[in-house]
Amino acid sequence: MNIIVCVKQILDPDLPPAKFRVDEQSKRVIPPEGIPFVMNPYDEQALELALRLKEKNGGKIIILSAGGQEALSSIKHALSLGADDGFALSDEAFDGSDSFSVAYILSCAIKKIGNYDLVLCGRQAADWDEGLTGPLVAHRLGIPVINLVREIELSNDKLRFTRVISGGEQVFDVAAPALATVTNEAPQPRLPTGWGIIAANRKQIAVWNAGDIGADVSLVGGRARRRKLTGLFVTERNRSCEFIGGENVLEAADKLAQRLNQLGAIR
């Protein structure tokens, strides 16, 4: 089974707010100097499902990532975990692409690879949390899509997807090829092994540009954006502390409940 996993490199979600700035004028996040980008954690879980499928059924895992130097480190990380091959999709024309353009870029690369049974993406990227790219890639490729997938099995030549819903699960059988976006209820990603890291370091990662994947440059980059970001704000948070007492525990609890109700914290 050939699986393509699309990964995105993002600003480390563990960064404390003090480490980056939001420029509300240019509506951009200024990343901290020197701290490397990391692979989107949902994509890591997508890769984990891919690795489990490969361990059970054999096949090959190919990593695709749109981006320059940062993409290479995410692909390297994926290779160290056990992916077979990885390609960085990088071109000056791609700069400033939004989810719609990135989905187009990824779909061009997937068409170039051609021989695949399954495409996996994280449910969303932990930076902007839009969750658009996966479904848009499926739409571009004209293949079925199942989102919020927790488990994938190969069953009688069909792909069986277990999908998480509120208080339950849905199971879909789909003929390959298909695309799934993977939810955080999927298994946690493994840690790389020593030899995995060494092998990933030795591997040359090929970079494909717009010409290599036959992408129409009028559909990518900042000029292809049809949505204009007009505001980007960090929510202001205030903390305060009050001591609430009483003659006894019951009275204190009662006063606490009244105060919380008054503040709108409980109803």
Binding site: D12, D14, L15, P16, A18, K19, I35
Partner: peptide
């Protein structure tokens, strides 16, 4: 400590 970057295990 709040300005430092940690990845909590």
């Amino acid at each position: 400590l709040a300005v430092n970057k940690y990845t909590i295990d």
